[in-house]
Amino acid sequence: MNAVTKTYRRGAHEVHALRGVTVGLPRGGFIAVMGPSGSGKSTFLHCAAGLDTPTSGTVHLGDVELSRMNETRLTELRREKAGFVFQAFNLIPSLSVADNITLPLRLAGGRADRAWLDEVVRRVGLGDRVTHRPSQLSGGQQQRVALARALVTRPEVVFADEPTGALDTTTAAEVLGLLRQVVDTMGQTVVMVTHDPVAAAYADQVLFLADGVIVDTVRSGTADAIARRMSDLGRSMAAA
């Protein structure tokens, strides 16, 4: 991401969600993005993932530059190179676990590599649930399905937007542990937006956004240190 700005018009006013953001996200890393409400973190994720187009600047996903692609090509690229995990699990109620996981492949006109599907299912701990429907699963199990769905296409990056926001503390820790595991054992790249310092502490580095600008980076921080930095940012924005 190089010199990325994103401006929205609301009536007669312009809202500057991102202001000249330049950052490189390392392959095989776990990056958390934090910031006060309205800091631009969701816009950052959407631009990085090709879900939104910057007003100016360039965005690369792997070695592909996204900014000038039309929506059809962006959709194809997201299917090929990006996986997504959201706070809402976004599973299809009528489909089995296996069919929910392989849905992105079928939408792209492909088929699942059976050995890889079995490996992904095993890694997320769903081996005995592949024939179940989402309604037969707990919230944590449904989020595991969503993570498996994000991984099955072998994406360059998994983008996670508040992936533990709907989960209790214990289940959230299990899902975060899985994200940490796929980085450490599979070399997967994960970019996660979160408001939770405990969740951010699982990451290799935390980017702090304020008023659309990256104002700080913490590497391998504790939850307490991350929480203190967030409090400092909140006070700074309140005083501005």
Rank of each mutant, 00 (worst) to 15 (best):
R79M: 09
M69V: 04
S42F: 06
G40C: 02
A48W: 07
V59D: 05
L77P: 01
G62Q: 13
N70C: 04
M69D: 02
S39A: 13
E71F: 12
L51Q: 11
E80D: 11
H46V: 13
H46G: 14
E76W: 09
P54L: 07
S37R: 08
E71S: 11
K41C: 07
M69R: 12
A49K: 08
G38E: 04
L66M: 02
D52T: 10
G50Q: 02
G62S: 10
L77S: 06
T75D: 11
S56K: 00
S67K: 02
H46L: 09
S42D: 09
R68P: 13
A49C: 05
L74G: 07
S42A: 03
G40V: 14
S42H: 01
E76H: 14
G62T: 10
G38D: 08
L61N: 00
L66T: 01
F44S: 12
R79F: 06
H46R: 15
L66W: 00
H60V: 01
E80Q: 13
G62W: 13
E76N: 10
T55Y: 02
L66V: 01
G57R: 10
V59T: 00
L45E: 12
T75M: 08
P36N: 00
G62L: 14
A48M: 15
T75P: 04
T43S: 15
G50T: 00
G35N: 07
T58L: 11
H60F: 05
G57K: 12
D63V: 00
L45K: 07
D52I: 05
L66N: 00
K81M: 15
E71P: 12
T75K: 09
D52P: 07
L51M: 09
V64M: 04
T53L: 14
L77F: 06
T53E: 15
K81E: 05
S39K: 10
G35S: 02
V59L: 00
T43Q: 11
S67C: 10
E76P: 12
S67E: 05
D63K: 04
A48D: 06
L74M: 11
R68F: 09
L61F: 03
R79N: 15
L51H: 09
H60W: 08
N70D: 11
S39N: 13
M69Y: 12
R79Q: 12
L45W: 15
G62F: 10
G57W: 05
L61Q: 08
V64E: 07
E80I: 09
R73S: 07
G50E: 03
A48I: 11
K41D: 08
S67W: 03
K81I: 01
D52G: 09
E76Y: 12
L45P: 14
